[in-house]
Nucleic acid binder design. Structure first.
Length: 781
DNA sequence: TCGCCCTATATAAGG
DNA sequence: TATAGGGCGA
């Protein structure tokens, strides 16, 4: 990395380097940092905001700063609170700090995610909020099941008011730091006629009874404790001498409140809090993140030092220019200008217009093979998509080509059905009062215990106010259960007793294996003939294997609910396919960015829901995408795309019009029938006096507008085909067309209708083959 | 209670 | 198009 230790004796740096003494050597860990990075590392005391643009060495600054604090003995490892959002980031930091300070300093017990640290604090003080320190952490699945029970008890039609929706609302409230008492019926008016708030309260009560907390509670209950028990808060004030926060732009209100409370040990102007982030990379607004947190840091902590890292060590100047020009269309930025330190203009950013998403996948595949032939590794290339449904076409193409790829993201290891089932067994063994887990597996594998039996267990559990397992024991003593169910349950209960007793004598991973065998769970998948069952069995083995790394069953269960994420084996050379969101923080030589079409990117749904703010977040996402590239960014637009099986025509994304023409190379694969291809709209904006105004007059934008107004009139559609399809269906099933009729389609040309479902027509086109399209795209031939 | 068939639905995703 | 979940019949 450039930026050698050239400035150590310069007067400007003298003040901060003075602490090492005139003749002392600069510590190793400071070598190779540029001036701003070094200042960020050395400004240990007082509030500090580090605005770190993409590729400017953010993680390096954070880890070096910690190393510096440790080496200069300003604090012990246990006195530094350092929070990240993801386990991956936390792991990476631990590793890098280890490298910097050597193995001498063990631990950093308070380096972790918001949630793992929150859980740690909550376990210590659980009794203050009516929990026991061994409370279980509910995952999304448990949460939904619990809500369904509540809805059932309240006689709310789950069809009309889906449990997911309420879960989403409660998540939003918790992200904003609102407990049930802070939510008014008016806030929840959109759910079950304003009963949302009451359900929220009922949900929280159930959690207490179950001795459980969900992810939101981990922070919310911390805040509650800090507010109500000043002595507890004071303890942490004394404990944490330094606080560091990574990706601050992603923090939500609850996290913000949590941090503020912890920072209150000193006057705001002297708090040793350092936050690092990039407002231009805030892409999680839909998850509750408040960009505002970072924008207002200087107000929260008066006198805060602000350091901008603007030297980019990643991308060529063409790539940076494209990204910077694009992001400049956003308002309300703190404003940074990235300067390349790579020193190369590099290839222009390419924009390719293709006929449809199939051609897009073909083109990308070809290009990848070309680069591969030139000696580049597949590991150095990635495809970043806006929505996961875009991935499939690439996967299919790559399978045909025999091109190695890996999908990053997707369902995570512990979210798999088989893993959750196995964990449910283990949870009941570790904690027999865990009713949700017990319910999950009473009839898995199938034991002939259906809804009515489970219902009976629930009733007894509720009326006797005991756990589900205890209720089961009670029922076994009565005549209420049918003989068959009774003997099955008796068998199951005695199995659990048996397993629990073995917990003392056996290593927990051996016990786990026995549980899976004896319960018949393994056998269930062995008997299963579906193609993914071998994989599931493999996952179960992996689970047992991973248990060996833990001392106790309890330790393992804590880990699995908070930490376990999917292993991304990087041994093999493979192209990465992932969403733009999961690409944040990564970099590749070559980045393919397909699907730059209005409605898909920027996403229509985001714009509908969040308007201008939504559009700006989409633009930041585009910025994140482009800045992942070191050498090449290759964007593409498809003129036609299949969404949920229906072909729809699309217009180029307005973001393409916002790229600087001098850094962009526009290509057309020539397979368009003219008219709609992306024809270098990037030039038009530069004829206008004010680029910020005129962006909405670019061809892409105008086409989008035209499309939108047409929609109401029943004209051509962009993405809402399904909606319209339904309303037309209501008018009867008759179509203006008949089977066998010759028709014309603006894109696909002439063809004959082979099937009609409502207003969806299947047509065999003479040139384009068989497609399913909406009737409104078709004219009589 | 099980299992099949039909239909409703479809971003992004961290802990 | 693909899948998941609910309803209903055996």
């Amino acid at each position: 990395m450039p930026g050698n230790a050239h400035n150590i004796d310069r007067p400007s740096a003298g003040a901060i380097t003075g602490q090492f003494g005139r003749n002392q050597q600069t510590p190793d860990y400071l070598r190779g940092l540029n001036e701003e990075q070094r200042e960020a590392v050395l400004s240990t005391d007082g509030p500090l905001l580090v605005l770190a643009g993409a590729g400017t060495g953010k993680t390096r600054v954070l880890t070096t700063r910690i190393a510096h604090i440790l080496t200069t003995k300003r604090a012990w490892p246990s006195e530094i609170l350092s929070v990240t959002f993801t386990n991956k980031a936390a792991r990476e930091m631990k590793e890098r700090i280890g490298h910097l300070v050597g193995a001498g300093v063990e631990g950093m017990p308070w380096l972790g995610t918001f949630h793992s640290i929150g859980a740690r604090i909550l376990r210590r003080h659980a009794e203050l909020v009516d929990l026991k320190s061994d409370f279980t952490i509910l995952d999304t699945d448990d949460q939904i099941r619990l809500i369904k029970q509540l809805l059932d008890a309240e006689n709310i039609d789950e069809k009309r008011w889906p449990a997911r929706q309420l879960a989403g609302m409660m998540d939003t409230w918790k992200n904003r730091g609102l407990g049930p008492e802070d939510v008014s019926p008016a806030d929840s008016g959109s759910y079950a006629n304003g009963r949302g708030a009451r359900l929220y309260a009922a949900y929280q009560n159930r959690l207490k009874v179950l001795n459980a907390a969900d992810f939101g509670d981990l922070l919310l209950l911390n805040i509650k404790i800090f507010k109500e028990y000043p002595d507890v808060l004071a303890y942490y004030h004394g404990k944490f001498k330094y606080m560091l926060v990574d990706e601050y732009q992603d923090s939500n209100v609850a996290q913000y409140l949590w941090l503020r409370l912890l920072a209150q040990g000193k006057p705001a102007s002297q708090a040793n809090i350092c936050v690092v982030g990039d407002d231009d990379q805030s892409i999680y607004g839909w998850r509750g993140a408040e960009v505002d947190n970072i924008l207002r840091f200087e107000k929260d902590f008066p006198g805060a030092k602000v350091i901008k890292l603007e030297r980019n060590y990643r991308s060529t100047s063409n790539i940076l220019k494209a990204a910077s020009t694009l992001i400049a269309f956003n308002e309300g930025r703190l404003g940074k200008t990235l300067q390349t330190d790579v020193g190369e203009t590099g290839e222009p950013v390419s924009v390719t217009s293709v006929w449809d998403s199939e051609e897009e996948a073909r083109t990308v595949g070809d290009e990848i093979e070309n680069y591969q032939r030139q000696g580049e590794t597949l590991n150095s290339m990635a495809i970043l998509v806006r929505a996961s449904f875009q991935m499939r076409e690439f996967e299919e193409r790559f399978i045909t080509l025999g091109l190695n790829y890996r999908v990053i993201g997707g369902p995570r290891f512990y979210e798999r059905k088989e893993i959750r089932d196995a964990i449910a067994y283990l949870r009941v063994v570790a904690n027999p009062s865990d009713g949700l887990s017990f319910e999950r597996i009473v009839n898995t594998p199938k034991r002939g215990l259906g809804d009515s039996t489970v219902q009976m267990l629930h009733n007894t559990s509720r009326s006797a106010n005991v756990s589900l397992l205890a209720a089961t024991r009670m029922l076994l003593e009565t005549e209420e259960l049918k003989p068959k169910q009774r003997s099955t349950l008796r068998e199951l209960v005695s199995q659990f007793d048996n397993w629990s007793s073995r917990l003392q004598s056996l290593p927990h991973y051996e016990l786990a294996e026995q549980i899976l065998d004896e319960s018949g769970y393994t056998a269930m998948w062995q008997a299963d003939k579906s193609p993914d069952s071998p994989g599931r069995l493999e996952n179960l083995k992996e689970l047992v294997r991973s248990m060996e790394e833990f001392e106790t069953l309890g330790g393992f269960l804590e880990h699995i609910s908070l930490v376990m994420d999917r292993d991304t084996a990087e041994a093999e050379d493979a192209v990465s396919i992932m969403t733009l969101h999961s690409a944040k923080g990564l970099e590749f030589d070559t980045v393919f960015l397909p699907g730059w079409e209005e409605g898909l990117f920027p996403s229509q749904r985001t714009m509908d829901e969040s308007g201008r703010a939504g559009l700006e977040e989409e633009r930041r996402l585009a910025y994140v995408g482009i800045t992942r590239a070191r050498k090449r960014a290759r964007l593409s637009v498809a003129q036609n795309r299949r969404i949920h099986g229906l072909w729809q025509s699309a217009i180029p994304s307005r973001f393409l019009d916002e790229l600087p023409p001098e850094a962009v190379d526009v290509k057309d694969t020539g397979s368009s029938y003219g008219g709609y291809g992306y024809g270098g709209g990037a030039t038009s904006r530069f004829n206008k006096a004010d680029p910020f105004e005129s962006v909405y007059e670019t061809p892409g934008w105008q086409r989008a507008r035209a499309q939108q107004s047409n929609r109401k009139g029943g004209g051509p559609l962009t993405i809402e085909g399904d909606l319209v399809a339904r309303s037309v269906d209501l008018g009867g099933d008759r179509s203006a067309f008949g089977i066998g009729e010759r028709v014309f389609h603006l894109k696909f040309g002439y063809g004959a209708i082979s099937d009609i479902e409502g207003n969806k027509l299947t047509i065999d086109f003479e040139k384009a083959g068989r497609k399913k399209v909406l009737e409104s795209f078709i004219k009589k031939g």
